[in-house]
């Protein structure tokens, strides 16, 4: 495999639930190449959220190795993980997670602030990103002045801002109606065409079909599936 940017080997995750240990992930192996569009499909309780947290460096695995962009993420401390999240991962959440008191521009600028970019460049970049998701006329709107679809576009622009290695989307259409959901999906397609690597977590097979590759997760085990088979 040539351009592998994410490589997981034998990832397990255990939680202590009262007296007993609960195993959520049982040895996940996953490789993602540059420019892929992968859907992780699984019902609730399958461990997909835990997997997403580990991919997104929000959580660390109990065992196994996770190499992201050539770096062993497992050995990093809290401050270093912050910087990895900032530069390598672009999060897109089900409920958008925009700051209500900040306008679209300010929301998109947030990860740029944390990466220490200067004000001028930041404004430039944020504007660029919002144009990319088709919101050039809504730069200074506040989240409550935007529709759900538009809010998710702002969130996508924010995820793109630092040119991350991976766009990590958690049920990106979960809070949207079907029509808007489709629009967001077609935006994902376009972004993937532009060369962005996308990993999308979903329980909805209909949404998962938009991806080029589907992996299924069930009871903490990952199995490769193909979009056409599903």
């Amino acid at each position: 495999m040539s351009n592998v940017i994410l490589s997981m080997r034998g990832i397990t995750k255990q939680y202590r639930m009262g007296d007993e240990m609960q195993t959520v992930l049982r040895g996940i192996d996953l490789d993602v190449e540059q420019g892929e569009f992968v859907a992780v499909l699984g019902p609730s309780g399958s461990g997909k959220s835990t997997l997403m947290n580990i991919i997104g460096c929000l959580d660390t695995p109990t065992s196994g190795s996770y190499i992201l962009h050539g770096r062993d993420v497992g050995s990093l401390d809290e401050e270093e993980l912050s910087s990895v999240r900032n530069k390598e991962i672009g999060f897109i959440f089900q409920s958008f997670q925009l700051l209500q008191r900040q306008n679209a521009m300010q929301n998109v600028e947030l990860p740029l602030v944390y990466s220490g970019m200067h004000t001028h460049d930041r404004t430039q970049r944020a504007k660029q990103m919002l144009e990319r998701v088709g919101l050039s006329d809504k730069l200074y709107h506040y989240p409550n002045q935007l529709s759900g679809g538009q809010q998710q576009r702002v969130a996508i622009a924010r995820a793109l801002a630092n040119h991350p290695t991976i766009l990590l989307a958690d049920e990106p259409t979960g809070a949207l109606d079907q029509q808007t959901g489709k629009q967001v999906m077609s935006l994902f397609h376009d972004l993937n065409e532009d060369g962005n690597t996308i990993i999308m977590i979903t329980h909805d097979i209909g949404i998962a079909r938009h991806a080029k590759r589907i992996v299924r997760i069930l009871d903490g085990n990952l199995t490769e599936g193909v979009a056409e088979d599903a």
């Binding site: 997104g56 929000l58 809290e78 401050e79 912050s82 910087s83 999240r85 900032n86 530069k87 999060f91 959440f93 997670q97 700051l99 947030l110 990860p111 944390y114 990466s115 924010r158 630092n162």
Partner: peptide, 16 residues
């Protein structure tokens, strides 16, 4: 809480 979580997810260091 949510906002803090989001900021951390977007790369805000705990010290910040």
């Amino acid at each position: 809480t949510t906002e803090i979580g989001l900021r951390k997810a977007l790369g805000a260091k705990p010290s910040l």
